[in-house]
Design a protein around this nucleic acid. Sequence first.
DNA 1: TAAGTTATCATGTCATAACAAGTTCTGACC
DNA 2: GGTCAGAACTTGTTATGACATGATAACTTA
Lengths: 249, 249
Amino acid sequence: MQSEKNILHFSPVPLYTQIKEVLRNRILNGTYQCHDQMPSESELTKIFGVSRITVRQALDHLQKEGLIFKIHGKGTYVSKPKVFQNLGKLQGFGEAMSGMGYEIVSELIDQKVIPADKTVSLKLNVNKDELVYEIRRVRYLNRSPLSLDVTYIPKAIGERLVKEDLAHRDIFLILENDYGYSLGQADLQIESILADDVLAELLHVDAGAPILRIERLTFTTNNQPLDFEYLYYRGDAIQYRLRIERGPI
Amino acid sequence: MQSEKNILHFSPVPLYTQIKEVLRNRILNGTYQCHDQMPSESELTKIFGVSRITVRQALDHLQKEGLIFKIHGKGTYVSKPKVFQNLGKLQGFGEAMSGMGYEIVSELIDQKVIPADKTVSLKLNVNKDELVYEIRRVRYLNRSPLSLDVTYIPKAIGERLVKEDLAHRDIFLILENDYGYSLGQADLQIESILADDVLAELLHVDAGAPILRIERLTFTTNNQPLDFEYLYYRGDAIQYRLRIERGPI
DNA sequence: TAAGTTATCATGTCATAACAAGTTCTGACC
DNA sequence: GGTCAGAACTTGTTATGACATGATAACTTA
């Protein structure tokens, strides 16, 4: 019946999902390469032995993921993997830059247990004056200071974190891979400020230099606040690139 | 034939788009309220006089926008409007703030046809020195200047745009609703700079004040660059809030 | 040769139809 | 009364078929 023996017509997983996975793999492993034209919808119906509506459903999902794009009247094509493709996702800075050929190291400035002030307690959903960990690090990109990260994290997690190699490992990766937390959404707030003396010294800029200040509150997939950070980036460094998708209203 | 006289079966705009707009309006104006159950798919087919596949296409889009959610076997429901729901999506600033209780007006500083410089030509994918429109606007939030938007757009589109009411309408909305462009992704680049004299005067800040500079390149769903902008925000205003989701890779 | 027309193939839209599967309510049976 | 089967909803998946519309190449015509 079907030319593709990988496609099971009697399976709890929908046909369009199976087809989507097969096509995704072929794109990722290079069977269909960047800017290649994919088989047309009618060809795919023959290849997989399904109807056109099923093929279109699989393609729609892949398009939503950004792996392919369609041109009316011409065909379906494999998207060029863009630098930004994986951004616009929540990720730490090291996570973002490593894999892009940059070497990121962090210098631990200090780490201490402090009572949560009003802002931190609100963000992390703890009582005021409840103890939390404050971790201050300066991140270097190719020997040049790039940002000061001030992280607030519940005391229980902080106690484990401070034993880790925070100079080379991303906190998000530790939380996810080592501690098993599942990171979900994050709220970002961005503003522009002037460097004070402390920032100026740490980031090797003049006092009064422009600084990009990002406030980030990260949640688990269960919507529990987990990590609250202030990120002070040097204003002259290309900072955050986001690939965001349109959603109306 | 159809119970809904607003739905035109012989129109260049697809039926599912018309239905999507009608339903969206009913959600926004409160006809269908938060957590209300929407009419079932079979009811909607009768209401609008279309087939179920068309209704589902409209609902799928609304779901992707986050306005509704479905529960298998139960029904379709109106989502609770979240503060961040509409952020982290690509949207113009007015689009973001209106509906949040703020009044946004824009002042048109100037609009002119200029030859594309190297940056603009690269971003918009046109030849260097090819003519493009440059539109400069200052946006006011409750009488207070908030940002300078410098928009570069291909000449053909710009010629139509400059006839519009750019003081009160969002460019993105005009492009989408009036011109039928389907906006897809956008690349954002954010940095922090100091206000020069021009910016200082336009934004009512001192020269040297911190400014948030956002470079935004917006694509159609066909991945054609459509709109390239520099957004200069006052650094002391809460700027951009993004709700971003974690994605694999 | 250049310009216009047509054929062909691509995706986009829409209709009708059927069955699967999850939820809820009802009514029969114990 | 409590339980359980089933009817009557819901959304989810899939098929088949049709026509519209955009893009392109081949063909025709001036």
